[in-house]
Every structure is written in structure tokens, then in C-alpha cells.
Computed example of a mutant assay.
Amino acid sequence: MKQLLPRAWLTRGWLACLLWPLAQVHGLLVRLRLLMYRSGLLPSERFRVPVIVVGNVVAGGAGKTPLVISLVRHLQAQGLAVGVLSRGYGRSGQGSLEVRPETPINESGDEPALIRRATDAPVFVARKRPEALRSLLAAYPASTVVVCDDGLQHYALQRDIEIAVFDDRGVGNGWLLPAGPLREPWPERQRQGLDLVLHTGQQPAFEGFTSSRQLADHAQTADGRQIALSALRGRPLVALAGIASPESFFGMLRTRGLTLAKTIPLPDHHDFEHEDLSAYTGQTVLCTEKDAVKLFAIPGLAGLELLAIPLVFSPEPAFFVALDALLRPKLSQLPSEHGHQTT
């Protein structure tokens, strides 16, 4: 029987094929932009401390922030003074700002606030990463390494180590935006300086390091009290999530034996308001840590039990071995006043 449609239409979808010309233009612009930065036609700044960039090649969240938190804790355990940079997606301003415990979420963004709370490391946000790094080093001159949350495609900041994060989507249909999910050509991007690939899902689509993610054994209240998840079993619960993949959070809750009477999937970085929860007065509402940094700040929610469930994220040990091997030579080049010695 004669094939009526081109093979690409069958394997990638008719809409993706209609958008393919735009994806080709996107690819040309991406390559041209990278060439202009590497040739010096566009300015790119290098700083005196090693910079580790954690980012996505695919659009949407893939687990960058949990990895950043894990990286910062790993480096802190080695006695390194770690700083963090972020654009602060969804924040009201664009200039450089240090994220403090008292900083309003609309000024910092939810992910920078979560990183600050989880690591106690200095976190600076700015639309332009070099501006954020200048502010960080001015305030914390003894910093020995900087981790940049997102920014893989922001070449105005030179980096020493690049880490790309993938979830179970892999590279999708393999096409660039808008015909597919890719921000940059793959695997071409892998050959252009990318150092490490980490998969955060359960089914890696190609070679790279793996990781595990599971919920903690407890939930946490706004005042820091912990409640065992086992104590919540058998109760009808409401669960909400304003993250890239809400269903993954709901699935992990069910895996822990919890009964979800209602689930509320919301867009990533959702701006919560009192009305989002007013209908659940008298009930127990579960959320992610990322959502909690916004929800716990909303006044007048005393009528319900709001609990955040921490995520335990762990890259495989070999990932940290590879990271340390890449970072060690960079640290050995730091001036002596940083007070760090490599072994």
C-alpha cells in the first residue's frame, strides 16, 4: 500500500512538520549567536572564580534546581565557599539583588528563594548573569566557586563547567523550537563544550549520568515542624503542584501510600493567591517545596493544614567524581587569599 504521508509527518506529527522551516531558522540563529560570542564579536566576561552552569537543552523544567541544591551542598561539604546565580524567573525587577530570607518572593523568584533556604549559600539574581556575579563577588569576595542555575544559552557569562539536565522526555522529537522542544541542536551541542549530562528521570534516553529522586519521609509545616508521611495515610488529601510536571509529584505521593482526594495541576511558577486555597478550608493540602516558598507567605491560610513535601534528589556517585575531577584544576588556579588548598 502506498504511503500517503511523508515519514516525518508520521513520526513527528503534522504540526511539527509545518513548523519545521521556523525551526531551521532558529537553528541558524543559534549557531550564529554562538559563533559571534566565541569569535569575540559579542562580549563575554570571565571572572576570577570557577563558574559551573546547570541548564537545559530542552524547553521546560527538567530538574535543574534540585541538581543545583545538590551541587551546592556537595561543594560546601568540601569546605568551598559557594555562591549561586539565577535570573529569578517571574521576579518583578531585572537588576541585581541578593536573595535574603526576608526577600519577598515576587522580588526574588521562587527557585532562588528555595535554593537560598535549602543551602544557606549566597544567592544573587539579575537578568544579566555577569551583573549578578559582580554583585556576588563584591559582597562575598572569599567565594571560591559559583553555580549558575540555568543560563546554558547565556554566553555573556563564560563558564568553566557546563552541565545539561534531561528528564524522561529526552530530546523529544529531536527538532528545535518551535517544531520540537530543543533550544539548541542535539547532539551538536554536546560536542561544543558540554562537560556533563545528567538524567533526572527513570528512563534515560541516551548516555549520561543518572540520578534518583524520591519524597522525604516527612512533610513540613510553615513553622518548620515535621510530620511523618505515614501519619497522613488513610486521610483524604488535596495535592497541588505548580511545577513543570505536576503529575510526577502526585505519582510520588501515591507511591508513598497517600490517598489523594483531589489533585490540582498548575502551570510552572504559578503565582498563588488566597483564592487558590480558600475552597479547601478544613482540609490537608500537600505541595512541593518550590510551591511552599510562595504559599507559606500568603496570609490568612490558618483554616487549612498546608504541608510541603521535601524532595530527596541524589545524582549517582560517579557524577560527583567526574565533577570533582573537572573542578580540581580550576580551584588550583585560585589566588592564595581564597584560603583553599587542593589535595
Rank of each mutant, 00 (worst) to 15 (best):
G170H: 03
I52R: 00
G27R: 08
P204N: 09
S143L: 15
S86N: 07
D150Y: 02
G282Q: 12
P329Q: 04
R48F: 02
L85C: 01
D324I: 02
E98F: 15
Q220M: 15
E98S: 13
D110V: 04
F313Y: 03
R73N: 01
H340Q: 14
P317C: 10
G234W: 12
L97N: 06
L67T: 00
A205Q: 12
C17G: 07
C148V: 12
A179M: 09
G93V: 08
I69P: 00
L157D: 05
A279E: 15
T11V: 04
I243D: 00
S230P: 03
A292L: 11
G151V: 05
T255I: 13
T342I: 15
P122T: 06
L260Q: 04
D271R: 15
A126D: 13
P181F: 04
H74Y: 05
L136A: 11
E289T: 11
I69W: 00
D271H: 15
N173H: 11
I105C: 14
S96W: 13
V58K: 01
L266S: 07
F319M: 01
R73I: 00
T144A: 12
A205W: 04
P204V: 08
I161W: 00
D276G: 10
Y37F: 14
Q94Y: 07
G224R: 14
C287Q: 10
I298K: 08
P315C: 01
R183Y: 07
P141W: 08
L198C: 03
A302T: 15
P6C: 04
V293R: 07
Q158D: 13
N106T: 12
N56L: 01
V145M: 04
G40R: 05
T65Y: 00
R46G: 10
S96L: 12
L198F: 02
A138T: 13
Y280N: 13
S230H: 14
G224K: 15
A121W: 02
I243K: 00
V312N: 00
T119L: 03
L196M: 01
G224D: 13
A297G: 09
P104E: 14
A279L: 14
E289R: 07
V58Q: 02
P204C: 06
Q341K: 15
R129C: 06
G88S: 08
A142F: 09
P178L: 03
V146N: 05
H340N: 10
K262P: 02
W14D: 01
T343N: 15
S211P: 03
A318P: 04
Q333N: 13
L176F: 08
P122W: 02
L307H: 05
L327M: 06
A222E: 12
